[in-house]
Design a protein around this nucleic acid. Structure first.
Lengths: 335, 335
DNA sequence: CCGGGTGTTGACAACGCTGTCAGCGCCCGC
DNA sequence: GCGGGCGCTGACAGCGTTGTCAACACCCGG
């Protein structure tokens, strides 16, 4: 029985017009109590629920927002989406998810698709370096950019201090006496990672350390590639005494390699927390890129926009703290 | 300028009727090439995209499915949703997510909400023990139940062998000489966990071991509570030599407690894999409840239903394998 | 007793799209 | 030359909802 009851059915049963039904279900007070009761009885009897599609068409605004992220399987984005969903539920708004798989082309397709669905708003963690298409595709739908894409003017953004926090992380390692510090991360395709690499280089420069290309491993942002890169680092004639891993997925690989190679004497700071980071021996020192405040800030902006706020777009920059747990406070090991 | 171009705009620019625009946009071959080209030019010029809401209203079928899970932040469900989203993208169908927070009441609200949105289908990992409301709420929308809810007749379900695999896991520990084996998990509210506890008891009975209530810890399905329960177990006068943890979130807590208490001599088998489980020392033996095949099977059923398949509902039961990695193969420690 | 205000209700159109069906021109065969 | 058929196109209705506006009953004061 996919034939759901409509306002017409309810109106017929209640002996009123469809408009009165509409008024009752929308809580208008322009209805007398007896009439209202008759309608409510009919609604209950027919198990009427409003057709959200027709509602959207008529009112012009959907009841869902779209969230575009790299991958929902990534625990950072999973938590991000979870917080967003939780907040939107309180507003009665649904969440459509769309993953980019870190492909700029796919991201674009997803944004266009979501725009077609008439989402009320979009939260996008963009990929690549050209997000100008967003303007055309979204045509007036509020958009909040997360984590990246701050170069696109006119949109609210929520970002973290990638460069600054990375520099602090590497400074931290320098403080404990390290001078051969490796960088592990993706290639510069993602602006966040590029920023983190700059922060790494900033810290080296400030400490008077010449960057060593052998210690700068790019193209290894995933667990497996990061593990391989770590093993390659350990096999160097002059291996690093510390590693700065620029994202948590990579850190999982670094940890795996260090533990399997029994080289937990090597210092490690991870940009971003991960499960069990605090249970390992030694526990892993992190730059705490907590997705929750990022999501909260993004939702705050979004709700303000949905409420019609016309204040100029804001670039929200969140501070990140280093959480010392042990692995980042190891002294350089004897070699 | 939230005013998107409509078929009327395109028709006016192209000098044709709206119906012809519709035909071109929908790839009908009932249009001559010159006409089609004029329309396509107009489409490009106006950046026309079809209004999916109006399309849904007219055709009666939405272009999204709903997925209802405990929490998207849970990595099991995150991966599940990720696989589903990936598969649905290929079909051009969007995914609406809704979390239950393990509340039966909230689950119900979410299902009703999604039904209102006219989703094409629903994938639900249900909570609690009464899912009969689903029948009324969904009114003919195809539903596939994941992981739980197999007691509800008339729906496709995808479940794993909770009881059987749990028994095998505990058998595994028995094989290595353990007789004091603890169970850690939620209370019996979730049927999956209840099944796993039964499997645990099955194995004990088969080995002629009297269950010890002190070793059966329920109400500790989350990381923190599981860690506390583990510490309590370790403090017993006659502590267990092995632990069977009935879900991966709990396992994270068990691992944390064992590592922080330096009691990694205690054997452990986890129902469900988790990040770094294979990198710990010792690596954690698991019952491999991989979300990917579960999601694949569920999507297969769903697509079959969407394609109109009217075959009777199927209960798909997936086999689970034990993956020995070390922690489950430890011998009982001397105490 | 009547005019106007108030409060409740209903008829109708429109949101943007597609299905139905009719119209129109053209070609072909008789 | 003409009727029938075919191929292309367009007018119109309707999906289920809500906004607009009009209608109607009722009450009150003059």
């Amino acid at each position: 029985m996919s034939g759901r009851a409509t306002v017409y059915d309810v109106a017929r049963v209640a002996g009123v017009s469809i408009k009165t039904v509409s008024r009752v279900v929308n809580g208008s007070d322009q209805v007398t109590d007896p009439t209202r009761q008759r309608v409510l009885d009919a609604v209950a009897q027919l198990a009427y629920v409003r057709n959200a599609v027709a509602h959207s068409l008529r009112t012009g605004s959907g009841d869902a927002i779209g969230v575009v992220v790299d991958s929902i399987a990534d625990s950072f984005f999973a938590t991000l989406v979870s917080v967003i969903e939780e907040r939107m539920l309180a507003e009665g708004i649904s969440v459509l998810i769309a993953s980019t798989g870190r492909s700029a082309a796919r991201e674009r397709g997803q944004v266009v698709r979501l725009a077609q669905q008439h989402v009320r708003a979009l939260l996008i963690a963009p990929i690549g370096d050209d997000h100008s298409y967003i303007r055309d595709a979204t045509a007036g739908v509020p958009v909040v950019l997360i984590d990246r894409g701050w170069e696109l003017p006119g949109y609210d953004t929520v970002v973290v201090q990638d460069r600054h926090a990375s520099r602090a992380a590497v400074d931290h390692l320098v403080t404990f006496g390290h001078r051969r510090i490796a960088f592990i991360g993706d290639n510069g395709f993602l602006s966040t990672i590029a920023e983190r690499r700059l922060g790494y280089l900033d810290a080296l420069a400030a400490a008077g350390i010449d960057p060593d290309d052998l210690l700068l491993r790019t193209g290894c942002g995933e667990t497996d590639t990061a593990a391989a890169a770590t093993m390659a680092l350990l096999a160097l004639p002059d291996p690093p005494t510390a590693i700065f891993s620029s994202n948590p997925r990579a850190s999982l690989g670094v940890v795996r390699a260090l533990h399997q190679g029994r080289r937990t004497d090597i210092a490690l700071v991870s940009f971003g927390d991960f499960a069990l980071a605090d249970s390992l021996e030694p526990a892993v020192t992190i730059v705490d890129q907590d997705p929750t405040p990022i999501a909260e800030a993004a939702v705050d902006r979004l709700l303000a926009r949905l409420a019609g706020g016309a204040d100029p777009p804001a670039d929200i920059v969140l501070n990140l703290q280093i959480v010392p747990r042990g692995s980042g406070e190891l002294q350089p090991c004897n070699q």
